[in-house]
Amino acid sequence: MTTIPLFHVLILSSLLFLIGFVGVVARKNTLFMLMSLEVMLNAVGVAFIGAGSVWQQADGQVMFVLILTLAAAEVAVGLALLIRMQNKYRSLDIDLLNQMKG
């Protein structure tokens, strides 16, 4: 019985997405980048759910479930790499990883 306009849902989604994007681009701490990435994934989820509810299709939620699994796998690998990085560099500064100098 809800009448939340899709427009507003998508605005929320893009706002969240862009906040996450800013975080990924602007932060140097890899952990924060990963968190911002979660925000971005979440925003995509919002868009899917919103669209799914507007068109009365379950596909939106299905896609959200898939995003969820993706996020889980991503976090597992990402955190493992983070730990590796911490062990090797004693820092999470992503800029330390640019050893490929062009």
Binding site: V25, M33, I94, L97, N98, K101, G102
Partner: peptide
């Protein structure tokens, strides 16, 4: 292109955006 391929992940992301 070399300047773009600087190995900095954040730079890549910005280019992506």
């Amino acid at each position: 292109l070399i300047m773009m391929q600087n190995g900095s992940l954040r730079w890549y992301l910005a280019a992506f955006g």
